[in-house]
Amino acid sequence: MNQNLNAGIGFRPPQAGTQPAYATPAYRSTALRAPFSAPISFPGSLTETTGPRFTPERFPPLTDLSRLEGHDAQGQRIIVAGTVADEDGRPVPHTMIELWQANAAGRYRHPVDGHDAPLDPWFHGAGRVFTDRGGRYRFVSVRPGSYPWRNHKNAWRPGHIHFSLFGPGFAQRLITQMYFEGDPLLAFDPIFHSVPDAEARERLVARLAIDLTEPEWALGYCFDIVLRGRGATPMEA
């Protein structure tokens, strides 16, 4: 029996409005996939408070999506950097971030993407980066294009990069999308607007950061990420 009790502290519930509802009618695909019953409240145990560890040895970093086999991908080269911390402001060191995105023309290298936009032979669109001891990460890519989807008439996704993160506990699992400051399509996007709280939505939007920008080379964008924090009540032993 696994008896490690140190990890037995739950995570705090989300603040109202800061996470999307499962049922989001404007996002049509939720109609048959959102559960009818509310998730049941269960304080959790080691199963939820522990989580997988990934090492760069076994999951090699891939931090430059802007080049493939020595060739530059088409598009606006960008640097994306930020920190990963928890809700108490504690940095999350040495944690793996998975990334995937469309190319500069708005096309994914994926069999079900039928958008009539060109693939780029020098762009794959998947990356992996680890935070350093201070919770900081950085990668290079090209700015993803917008693409149409069939959610409603004339529906276009704002440019975005998908992020997948694992905190120390499985219940901290985060999958999100990073958007770009000033993208006019954000106003019309039901996925972005699945988050009710405007301030929480705005934190999904990366800001141009001139200090991250490298002269004659690439624009820098800052995107900080927060994982759920520990709850206040330790588990009774």
């Binding site: 999958i175 999100t176 301030e199």
Partner: peptide
């Protein structure tokens, strides 16, 4: 400290 970053669907890709 702000609340946890909002989740967004994993999507089809």
């Amino acid at each position: 400290m702000p609340s946890a970053t909002a989740q967004q669907t994993i999507g089809p890709y």
